[in-house]
């Protein structure tokens, strides 16, 4: 099965349960938007998928192309094809973007095999062009002193170069002005295709004007309360999360 599948996932931080029985399937080739108010557990889901050690999965399963994702270390998950664009990317002082991505690609090769430098730079520059980024960018240290917009674009550049099968974009639109948002959205759109499944996590409908999803899910209180086609986002925008919450109650009664 070429999909990222989450089944009945429960996640706790300390004693507090944050994700409570979440189910979701993102096949390759589709874009799924996951929307929800603050504190609904969206970002927790992203971090759990990536394998952040602060979160404890108390129940449920996650499959990546049929393989049990939760058994893998964070770096193994990445090499299996899972990418996460961070809401707050870390700075890595002294390590240039070019060297960082090179090391990341190198880690995907079998032992003893060396990444061909000329091929690598050709690919890097091609992707930068696609994203409208200046080449001088590659010699800057990863995220060090970057503006919010530069950080997000750097995340998308990494997504482009690493070519994962599934990408989780965690609030990629937060902190961006409209121009930066358009640039990032253009980057993501240019990467869409049959080999990439995208889970787009966002608080606002605004992003979905630029990256039009195939499906929209609404997450409230640690689980998905409504799912639908892209029109759901507009309806949500109009009626608000309270409406979505009522939906959650309804579905709880009718279950």
């Amino acid at each position: 099965m070429k999909e990222l599948a989450v089944e009945n996932l429960h996640v706790a931080v300390g004693d507090q349960e944050i994700v409570r029985g979440l189910g979701l399937r993102v096949p390759r080739g589709q874009v799924h938007a996951l929307m929800g108010p603050n504190g609904s557990g969206k970002s927790t889901l992203a971090k759990v998928l990536a394998g952040h050690p602060d979160y404890r999965v108390t129940a449920g399963k996650v499959w990546i192309d049929g393989e049990n994702l939760l058994e893998l270390d964070p770096d193994e998950r990445a090499r299996r094809g899972l990418f996460m664009a961070f809401q707050y990317p870390s700075e890595i002082p002294g390590v240039t973007i070019a060297n960082f991505l090179r090391a990341a690609l190198q880690s995907r090769l079998p032992e003893g095999e060396e990444l061909e430098a000329t091929d690598y730079y050709a690919k890097l520059y091609e992707k930068m062009e696609l994203l409208g980024m200046d080449r001088s960018f590659t010699s800057r240290s990863v995220n060090e002193g970057f503006s919010g917009g530069e950080k997000k674009r750097t995340e998308i550049l990494q997504l482009a170069v690493l070519e994962p099968s599934y990408a989780v974009l965690d609030e990629t639109d937060s902190g961006l002005d409209i121009d930066a948002l358009k640039t990032v959205a253009h980057g993501v759109n240019s990467l869409r295709g049959p080999d990439l499944g995208i889970l787009l996590i966002t608080h606002y409908q605004r992003l979905l004007n630029y990256i039009v999803p195939d499906y929209v899910h609404v997450m409230v209180g640690g689980r998905i309360v409504r799912s639908g086609r892209k029109e759901l986002a507009l309806e949500l925008e109009e009626r608000g999360y309270d409406w979505a919450r009522e939906g959650a109650l309804e579905s709880a009664y009718t279950r």
Binding site: G51, D73, D75, F100, S107, Q158, L162
Partner: peptide
């Protein structure tokens, strides 16, 4: 963690 998420 950030670097591990890139495969290192």
């Amino acid at each position: 963690f950030y670097m591990q998420q890139r495969g290192l």
